[in-house]
Each structure stands twice: as C-alpha cells, then as structure tokens.
C-alpha cells in the first residue's frame, strides 16, 4: 500500500485552492506518475493528497479567437498527441508528447504534472520554453501568469507557492505563428526512457535568411533553458550549413550540463551542438524553407 495519510478530491478549481489555503501540507496529485513513484520509493512519506483529477475544465485544449492556444494542466500526453489544434499549430509539442514514457503512461500523465515536477528532463519543457509559454497559477487570493522560463527555480524546484496550483498553459500566437518547429529526444532506448538530451527549436525565415530562431534544451543544465547567444547570432543570417554549425557551437555556451550515469558532460555538449543543427534542418523545411544539402 502507498504511504498516504489523507486523500481529498477537489470538485472545482475554487474548491481546490480553498482546500490548499486551509491546509498548506496538501500535495496535489494529477496523473500520479511522479507522485506515486516517489511514494513507492520512500521519497515522500505520509502524504496528504489533494486530487484535482475530477476538475473537467482543466482537461481542455482550445484555441481562443486571438489565436492563443490554451492547454489545461490536466491534459494528458495521449490527448495532446491526438489533438488537431496541437498538430496543426505546434507539431513539436505533439512530438514531445509522444516521445514521453510509453502508451500507458501517456494515457495518464499530465502536462501540468510534467512541468510542476520541476525535472530538467521533462519532455514537454524544452518545447514550452521555445514557445515562450506562460503558466496561469491560481490561489484563493487570485491568479498570476508566469513565463515558463521564470517558473523553474532549480532542480526539482518551481515557483509554486504552497497555496497555488497550475490551471493552464497559455501559448500566444507570437510564440508559434509563422514558425516551423521540431523536437528531438535523445535517449538510450526508443521508448520508456528518460532523455539524455531534449532539443526543441522554432524558426521563422524570410527568403533565405533566419528572421528568428528559438532553441529550448532539456538536461543541458539543472533546469530546462534557452540558448540566447545562439538565437541572437542566428538573426538575419543566411540559411546555410556554416550558419547552422555556428548556431550549434554557440548553443553549447548557454548550457551547464553535468556528468551523470547516463552521459558525460562532454557527450551532452556534443549532442547539443549536433542535435540543434539536426532539429533546425527539419524546422527550416516546416517553416517553408528549402532543405539544406
């Protein structure tokens, strides 16, 4: 049996935030694919769980009249992968969704849990970074909206107060319209494996120059990150192999990879340089450009 001391089911967001305000020890559970594993491994004891699973409004994925894509915190990775709004506008996020876990995990694991867990390896994180996604956080006192880049504070640490919950992700059209994108998960196995490195790129081109390039990386530092130097360098540069090589080299500068049993720091840096370029090759074509030989 799991080491659970209490279990409450919230019926609505307002119900959930009122419960959180009355008991700061409550631990939110969504799909449970991180929480239950921690409980099983004794990394969490005597948990008082607050389930948000019944809050239907948090499952929705929709596009607003102004083009903003709203993804509820409870949307599962299976749902994201099958959703036409995601496929048509941000295929890189669909690629990230289907790269995580295996089918049974994707049927249950939520995108909200993936981000609130704070892991640098979270498969959806690098794409949400590249999309400049924002998070809507709710509490009994009101709400605030935080860019995903500011939400990550350190390994396993996110900017979530004890009385707050994540309700949805907001992705403005400025973050994806006119961009081509692609996500590459590099892992030792094709499925059921945690990323050695995750690379998500978005690029906008006009003619044969880059207008804008955005690069999000996972497992290249203690938190997911953006490669600001490489992005600045790319602006206005002609699209050919040497430019891509330069972007790849500069991308490494933004990283702070470490050696773990999965891979050494040097190997991860090599992956950053190489996979950023490979991801860009695909993204350029998706943005309407020609394939680079």
């Amino acid at each position: 049996m799991y080491d659970i001391q209490g279990y409450i089911e919230a019926e609505s967001v307002s119900d959930a935030v009122a419960l959180l305000a009355s008991n700061p020890r409550l631990k939110i559970i969504a799909g449970g694919t991180d929480v239950l594993i921690k409980l099983r491994h004794g990394q969490m004891e005597g948990a008082e769980l607050l389930s948000i699973r019944k809050i239907k409004e948090l499952e929705r994925i929709e596009q607003l009249a102004d083009g903003t894509i709203v993804i509820g915190a409870l949307a599962t990775f299976a749902q994201i992968f099958h959703e036409p709004i995601i496929h048509n506008n941000i295929p890189a996020l669909a690629e990230a969704a289907v790269s995580m876990g295996g089918p049974q995990i994707r049927n249950v694991a939520t995108i909200g849990g993936n981000i609130c867990n704070g892991a640098t390896s979270a498969d959806s994180a690098s794409t949400l970074f590249a999309l400049d996604a924002r998070l809507r956080l709710r509490s009994s006192a009101g709400e605030r909206v935080v860019p995903v880049q500011e939400f990550y504070l350190g390994p396993g640490k996110v900017d979530l107060k004890p009385d707050e919950m994540l309700s949805e992700f907001l992705i403005s059209p400025a973050g994806f319209r006119g961009f081509g994108g692609h996500y590459i998960k590099f892992a030792m196995r094709k499925a059921m494996d945690i990323a050695t490195l995750g690379v998500s790129v978005m690029c906008k081109i006009s003619g044969d120059v880059f207008r804008e390039v955005k690069i999000g990386l996972g497992v290249a530092g203690p938190t997911p990150l953006r490669c600001v130097e490489a992005e600045e360098f790319a602006k206005g540069k002609a699209i050919y192999a040497e430019t891509l090589a330069g972007i790849g080299r500069l991308a490494v500068k933004s990283t702070n990879a470490r050696t773990s049993w999965r891979a050494s720091r040097e190997y991860r840096e090599h992956l950053v340089e190489e996979l950023t370029q490979r991801a860009l090759h695909v993204a350029i074509v998706r943005a309407g450009g020609a394939e680079i030989g």
């Binding site: 694919t33 239950l36 594993i37 099983r40 699973r53 299976a78 295996g102 049974q104 049927n107």
Partner: peptide, 26 residues
C-alpha cells in the same frame, strides 16, 4: 510496481493503464 513493465495493464473506459500506479479509488 512502478509503471515500467506493463504486466499490470488493465483497460479503464477502454484505455490502457498500468494498474500498479493507478489508485483504486480512481
């Protein structure tokens, strides 16, 4: 017992889940 092997798979409303990491109350 931790969602890795799929031996405990059951169908919940027609969808596959690993029942070892799915609470009975759900």
């Amino acid at each position: 017992g931790v969602g890795e092997c799929g031996a405990c798979t059951v169908l919940v409303d027609g969808m596959t889940v690993d029942s070892c990491i799915y609470l009975a109350v759900w």
